[in-house]
Design a protein around this nucleic acid. Structure first.
Length: 247
DNA sequence: CGACAACCTTCTGA
DNA sequence: ATCAGAAGGTTGT
C-alpha cells in the first residue's frame, strides 16, 4: 500500500537526472501533514514576506496558545484555536509587526467562525475535495491567493500534487522545466501552467518534487549542499553577529 | 484575462 | 550613512 519515501525520490530521479544528485543530499526530506488551521495562518503570514519576519510573526501567534513545555531552553506552545485567535484585534496584530496581513488574519478567522459546522471542520473537510475545489474554497478566504492556497493544500490537506508557484519556483521552473517562458512575468495563468507542467513531469506527488527542488534552492541549503559536495561542511561560516553601536 | 499599483515591515546591497 | 529594492503575494482598479 504505502509508498516509500526512497521509492518516490527514485521515481523522480528517473524522470529528472537533476533529482539524482539532490536526492542524494536531501533523501530524508519530506512533506509535513500540518494542522490545517495552523498551516492556513502561517501561510497568510508568508505572503510577500521574508523568512525571518515570517518566523517572528508565527512565533507571536503560537504564543497565544497554551504553554506546553520547554526543550533545551526553547518554549513550546499549542497553536491557538479559532476562538483564541478571534480574540486578537487587528491593531494588536499590527503592533506585533504583521503589517497589512493583520486584517487578512482577522478576516479569515471571521469567515471561518461563520461556517455552519465550525471553521476547523470546514477546513478539514477540504481534504475530501479534489484539488481544484479545495483551492477554490481556500481562495475565498481573505489573504489567501493561489500560491498560499496551494501551500495549504499540499502541506495540510493531503493534496500531494498541489504545486505552489511563487517567485522561487517560477525561477526554478523557467530554468529547468519551461525554459521557453524565461523572462516572462508571472501571471496567474502562467502559475497554473507551471503547476500543470510539474504534475505532468512528476505525477501525483508533484508537490513533493517541487518541495525538494525548492528547499535545495534556499540559500541556507545551497551553502550546505555546496559544502557537502566539497567535503568542507565543517567550514560553513557561522551567521554574522550584529555589531553593537558605540555611543 | 492581463497589467499595475498599493500594501506593512525588515533587512540587504550598492 | 543612506536608500532603493526585495522578501516564499494578494487585492483592488
Amino acid at each position: 500500500m504505502g509508498i516509500c519515501l526512497g521509492d518516490l525520490w527514485d521515481e523522480f530521479s528517473v524522470s529528472d537526472p537533476r533529482f539524482a544528485e539532490l536526492a542524494g543530499c536531501l533523501s530524508g526530506a519530506r512533506v509535513l501533514r500540518q494542522d490545517p488551521l495552523e498551516c492556513l495562518i502561517q501561510f497568510i503570514c508568508s505572503s510577500n514576506n521574508n523568512i525571518k519576519r515570517i518566523t517572528q510573526m508565527v512565533d507571536f501567534v503560537s504564543k497565544l496558545g497554551n504553554y506546553v513545555g520547554e526543550v533545551e531552553g526553547v518554549g513550546f506552545y499549542q497553536f491557538p484555536d479559532l476562538d483564541r485567535l478571534a480574540k486578537v484585534s487587528e491593531e494588536e496584530l499590527r503592533k506585533a509587526g504583521f503589517g497589512y496581513r493583520a486584517k487578512y488574519i482577522r478576516g479569515t478567522v471571521e469567515v471561518l467562525q461563520s461556517k455552519p459546522g465550525g471553521g476547523v471542520e470546514w477546513l478539514t473537510s477540504l481534504r475530501k475535495l479534489d484539488l481544484e475545489s479545495a483551492i477554490e474554497a481556500l481562495t475565498s478566504l481573505p489573504g489567501v491567493g493561489p500560491k498560499v492556497a496551494a501551500c495549504i493544500a499540499l502541506f495540510s490537506l493531503d493534496q500531494h500534487h498541489a504545486v505552489p508557484v511563487d517567485t522561487h519556483v517560477w525561477k526554478i521552473a523557467t530554468r529547468y522545466l519551461v525554459p521557453e517562458l524565461a523572462g516572462k512575468r508571472l501571471t496567474p495563468k502562467l502559475c497554473t501552467h507551471v503547476a500543470d507542467a510539474f504534475v505532468q513531469k512528476y505525477g501525483k506527488y508533484a508537490g513533493w518534487a517541487q518541495t525538494l527542488l525548492f528547499i535545495a534552492e534556499l540559500p541556507s541549503q545551497k551553502a550546505l549542499l555546496q559544502s557537502l559536495s566539497n567535503g568542507t561542511a565543517k567550514d560553513v561560516k557561522p551567521p554574522k553577529i550584529k555589531e553593537e553601536e558605540e555611543s
